[in-house]
Computed example of a mutant assay.
Amino acid sequence: MTMRFTLVVGLLAGALAVAMTVALGVGAVQVPPAEVWGIVGHRLGLPWPAEVSWTRARETIIFDVRAPRVLLGAVCGAGLAAVGTAMQALVRNPLADPYLLGVSSGASFGAVTMIVLGTTLFGTRGSLPLAAFAGALAAMVLVFAAARAGGGVSSLRLVLAGVGVASVFAALTSFLLLTAERGNEAREVLSWTLGGLGGVGWDTLWLPLAVLVAASVFLMTQARNLNLLLAGEEAAATMGLAVGAFRVRMFVLLSLVTGVLVSAAGPIGFVGLMAPHAVRVLVGGDHRRVMPAAILGGAIFLVLADVAARTISAPQEIPVGVLTALCGGPFFLWLMRRGSRRAEGGAAL
Rank of each mutant, 00 (worst) to 15 (best):
V217D: 05
V217N: 04
F218P: 03
F218I: 01
L219C: 00
Q222K: 05
A223K: 00
R224L: 01
N225C: 04
N225E: 08
L226Y: 01
N227F: 03
N227P: 07
L228K: 00
L229P: 04
L229R: 00
L230D: 06
A231Y: 03
E233T: 06
E234Y: 03
A235N: 12
A235G: 06
A236T: 01
A237W: 01
A237E: 14
A237G: 11
T238C: 10
T238D: 14
T238E: 11
M239E: 13
M239A: 15
L241V: 02
A242T: 09
V243K: 13
V243R: 10
G244T: 14
F246C: 08
F246V: 07
F246S: 08
R247Q: 14
R247M: 06
R247I: 03
V248Y: 08
V248A: 13
R249K: 15
R249D: 10
M250C: 13
V252Y: 12
V252F: 14
L253W: 11
S255R: 13
S255N: 13
L256P: 11
L256C: 13
L256H: 08
L256Y: 10
V257Y: 05
V257D: 11
T258D: 13
T258C: 15
T258S: 15
V260T: 12
V260S: 12
L261Y: 12
